[in-house]
Computed example of a mutant assay.
Amino acid sequence: MPQTPVSLPDFRREKRLRRNGLWPIAGIDEVGRGCLAGPVAAAAVILDPSDVPDGLDDSKRLPAAMREALYEEILARGLAVAVAFVSAADIDQINIRQASLTAMRRALAALAIAPSYVLIDGNDLPADLACPGEAIIKGDSLSASIAAASIVAKVARDRLMTRLCSAHPAYGFSRHVGYATPEHLAAIAKHGPSPYHRLSFSPLRQI
Rank of each mutant, 00 (worst) to 15 (best):
M1V: 14
M1R: 13
P2I: 14
Q3I: 12
P5E: 15
V6S: 13
S7D: 12
S7A: 14
L8S: 14
R12H: 14
R12G: 00
E14A: 04
K15A: 15
K15S: 13
R18T: 15
R19W: 01
N20G: 14
N20F: 07
N20M: 13
G21L: 04
P24D: 01
I25W: 08
A26L: 05
G27F: 00
V31N: 08
V31F: 09
G34K: 03
C35G: 15
L36S: 10
G38N: 00
A43T: 05
D48P: 08
P49D: 09
P49V: 07
V52H: 10
V52S: 09
D54V: 09
G55Q: 02
G55K: 02
D57L: 07
D58M: 11
D58T: 12
S59V: 07
K60S: 13
L62C: 02
P63E: 04
P63I: 08
M66V: 15
E68P: 06
A69L: 09
E73N: 05
L75Y: 14
A76T: 09
R77C: 13
G78Y: 11
A80C: 03
V83T: 01
A84E: 01
V86N: 07
A89D: 08
A89T: 09
D90C: 11
D92Y: 03
D92H: 02
Q93K: 15
I94H: 03
R97I: 04
Q98T: 05
Q98V: 02
A99T: 06
S100G: 14
T102D: 00
T102G: 07
A103R: 06
R105F: 02
R106S: 10
R106A: 14
A107S: 00
L108G: 01
A109I: 08
A110N: 06
L111M: 00
I113V: 06
I113R: 01
I113C: 04
A114H: 02
A114R: 08
A114Q: 06
S116Y: 01
Y117Q: 13
Y117E: 12
L119C: 09
L119M: 14
A130I: 12
P132W: 09
G133D: 07
I136E: 13
K138G: 14
D140M: 04
S141D: 09
L142G: 03
L142S: 12
S143Y: 13
S143P: 11
A144W: 00
A144V: 05
S145V: 03
S145Q: 06
S145H: 05
I146R: 01
A147V: 10
A147C: 11
A148V: 03
A149T: 05
A149P: 02
S150Q: 03
I151S: 11
K154D: 12
K154Q: 13
L160R: 07
M161S: 03
M161N: 08
M161Y: 08
L164W: 15
S166A: 15
P169E: 09
P169C: 05
A170G: 12
Y171S: 00
G172K: 13
F173E: 06
S174I: 00
R175L: 15
V177D: 00
A180K: 12
P182K: 04
P182D: 06
P182W: 02
P182V: 07
H191W: 13
H191Q: 03
G192W: 04
G192R: 01
P193E: 11
P195Y: 01
L199G: 06
F201Q: 09
S202P: 00
P203F: 02
